[in-house]
Design a binder for these strands. Structure first.
Length: 669
RNA sequence: GCUGCUGUAGCUCAGCUGGUAGAGCGCGUCCUUGGUAAGGACGAGGUCAAGGGUUCAAGUCCCUUCAGCAGCUCCA
């Protein structure tokens, strides 16, 4: 006897074996038809999986209205895609085919090189399979038998996976649909007919088991929805996201450019982009001043020996520009980090505990030879400027300093309306040898970070082992770009290693008149100016708040008769410190407004005969439209106030959610 | 770095199975002098990414290099 409790509170009792689909059928044939899967006591199961035969259990039937059902259907769609590929091409080896945020993919090894030209054929074959509406049938077998089945199917990747990834499993499951049989954990929808609409999106290479020393597979990305409308909405969404891509907007709005002759991954800031960066730098400088930082400047190169001591040279030789070789063995490195230079400034004189904390800040430009395939607009580059600072403090000061660094980062992000970030604690992977320093020092640092962060209520906080810097654990502020790719912006890092005796042997004289070792904190609220501005362009979709807008106000003259008045107005705006231009072309006012709107100019001042007579301007707001006429001084004051307050009146709605990291292991095999 | 795709005017793109390059926007000149999202006419502008090859003939086919895009791997 089993008691089944449904979400509405009703309880049903059964003496026989029942399946979720049977319960659904009892309630009504419509529900039975709509049921795609079920949740039994928090575990998702197929609609045909028998329920337990005794005890009390909760049951929730999943239909296409439930978000869980979408992922299950997509997973089934991945099988349909794999089946289509196997029908069309010979020698297909199946790897993993999990669902991901917004869709799914399947990895294959096959001799045919897949390209977008193949998509229509694959999609047509998939449509056929969906139309046939064959059931997905689960087959549970002991591992020995599973192994034999995979061998018989000549699916060597699956065989390997059973031997390695699934070494612990005693029983394994397959799903069969027609001639297609795949080792798979499930779950699946009852039959393919429930797949409403799907589309192949892209093909890309992916390493087997994510290991770059293993063979590369071909990965097909696709998505599916229950309805065609949802699919189309999704595709429109993707198009919108592309339009706000900072690489597209950067070109359109003349913010930055990259020239192959200068070198890839090297950003040329155009005048308008430079204004945005300059305003952001000014903003950070003000914050630094308030928080007791001192500004320093250091050169762009340093001797290799410096980085041998710091460890950067040996640890990252692959991702650095090669050293500059001078006579007699002198070698210089383009600096990959600012910290060694700042350390030498700390060491320039003896320090007393009374001097600490010493906070040295610099907009320091660094160069890293990133892999060519990694370069991406402004977000992944080979030369960039960090809003960097290094804090040298006593052990007792660490928690307080660390906390205030995190607070500064939050303040800065908040000021820009950037609330969609998550916080990642990058800790050491104890099984890796890429880290310097003792395990004790690491534990101490990681514990200190956890303690500080726990009290701060940081959004989406997660600890990620293996994500630490080689010298210490860190707290990263991570944001997603317009297509869901995540980028690390702000970072605060705790470092017991560079100050150590094995590295730079930093000291200060304590109150006991003996030398002590300071602790270092590395921090950069923006991270890099390049990446930050790149992300910011997408955050605002190119529509910047007044204080950041490269061109803040444009004078639009109704007719050239009033050009003198307009020119005078433009001069007044410039004198007030506003970034102003005038449009004196012999165009109609409508055309001038249209151009200014399309260029996202925050304010337009329209002047004609009426305004010239009264010493007024007709103010047009980019967002609210025509505000009517006002005196010149009043208009200027209004704009200056908005600048001073760094007011953010509009942030573009996010186009896509952050990608959920998915290595394919969690879902299915 | 790896796999696949792409590279034509300042920008966005068209150019069929090889036969000496086209549109829209932008830009320039002229006409129009206007009142809150596109006035009109004319014109300039291209070593078809670079280099090599096949061919009577290459933007188009092949190879190499460079650059970009998507993803993977990496990321102090």
């Amino acid at each position: 006897m089993v008691k089944i409790k449904l979400p509405d509170g009703s309880v049903r009792e059964y003496a026989r074996h029942v399946r979720p689909i049977d319960v659904a059928a009892e309630i009504g044939p419509g529900l039975a038809k709509a049921t795609l899967a079920a949740v039994v006591d928090d575990t998702t199961v197929d609609s045909v999986t028998p329920l337990p035969s005794d005890g009390e259990h909760t049951l929730r039937l999943l239909t296409k209205k439930d978000p869980e059902a979408l992922a299950i259907m997509r997973h089934s769609c991945a099988h349909v895609m794999a089946r289509a590929v196997m029908r069309l091409y010979d020698g297909v080896q199946l790897a993993f085919g999990p669902t991901i945020e917004n869709g799914f993919y399947y990895d294959f090894d096959l001799p045919h090189k897949l390209s977008e030209a193949d998509f229509p054929a694959i999609e047509a074959e998939m449509a056929k399979i969906v139309k046939e509406d064959e059931p997905f049938e689960r087959i549970d077998v002991p591992r020995g038998e599973a192994m034999a089945m995979c061998r018989e199917l000549k699916q060597t990747l699956k065989v390997e996976h059973i031997e390695t990834g699934l070494a612990e499993e005693q029983r394994l499951s397959f799903y069969r649909q027609g001639e297609f049989l795949d080792l798979c954990r499930g779950r699946h929808i009852p039959s393919a007919g429930a797949i409403g609409a799907f589309k192949l999106l892209s093909v890309a290479g992916a390493y087997w088991k994510g290991d770059s020393t293993r063979q590369q597979l071909q990965r097909l990305y696709a998505t599916a929805f229950f309805s065609k409308q949802e699919l189309e909405a999704r595709l429109v969404h993707l198009e919108e996201a592309k339009r706000r891509d900072h690489r597209v907007l950067g070109k359109q709005l003349e913010l930055f450019t990259i020239n192959p002759l200068v070198g890839s991954g090297l950003i040329l800031w155009l005048p308008k982009g430079a204004i945005i960066r300059g305003e952001l730098e000014k903003f950070v400088r003000e914050e630094l001043l308030k928080r007791g930082y001192e500004t320093v400047y250091t050169p762009n190169i340093g001797r290799v020996e410096l980085y041998q001591i710091s460890g950067h040279f040996p640890y990252y030789s692959d991702s650095q520009f090669k050293p500059i070789e001078m006579e007699e063995g002198e070698r210089y490195l383009l600096k990959p980090m600012n910290c060694p230079h700042h350390i030498m400034i700390y060491k320039a004189k003896p320090r007393s505990y009374r001097d600490l904390p010493v906070r040295l800040a610099e907009f320091g430009t660094v160069y890293r030879y990133e892999q060519s395939g990694e370069l991406n607009g402004m977000t992944r580059v080979r030369g960039f400027t960090q809003d960097d600072a290094h804090i040298f403090c006593t052990e007792e000061q660490v928690a307080g300093e660390f906390r205030s660094c995190i607070e500064m980062t939050r303040t800065v992000l908040q000021a820009l309306g950037m609330n969609q970030y998550r916080v990642r604690l990058g800790f050491r992977d104890p099984n890796s040898d890429k880290y310097v320093g003792s395990a004790e020092a690491w534990d101490r640092a990681e514990n200190a970070i956890v303690k500080v962060c726990e009290g701060l209520d940081l959004p989406g906080m997660s600890i990620e082992r293996g994500d630490a810097a080689f010298y210490g654990p860190k707290v990263d502020f991570v944001v997603a770009d317009c297509i869901g790719r995540e980028w690390q912006l702000g970072t605060v890092q705790l470092d017991y290693n560079l100050p150590s005796a094995e590295r730079f042997a930093l000291e200060y004289i304590g109150s006991d008149n003996t030398p002590h070792r300071p602790v270092m904190i590395h921090r950069a609220p923006f991270g890099s100016m390049e990446r930050f501005v790149g992300v910011l362009i997408e955050h605002f979709a190119g529509v910047f708040p007044l204080w950041l807008a490269p061109e803040q106000v444009r004078v639009l003259v109704v007719s050239q008769k009033f050009e003198d008045y307009a020119r005078d107005l433009e001069r007044k705006l410039l004198a007030a410190g506003l970034r102003a231009t005038g449009d004196y072309r012999p165009e109609k006012i409508g055309a001038k407004i249209r151009d200014a709107q399309l260029q996202h100019i925050p304010y337009m001042l329209v002047v004609g005969g009426r305004e010239a007579e009264n010493g007024e301007v007709a103010v047009r707001d980019r967002i609210d439209g025509d505000l009517g006429a006002m005196k010149i001084d009043a208009a200027i004051e209004r704009l200056l106030t908005e600048v001073r307050e760094k007011k953010i009146r509009q942030v573009a709605a996010p186009t896509v959610a952050a990608a959920i990291t998915d290595d394919g292991k969690a879902n299915e095999y």
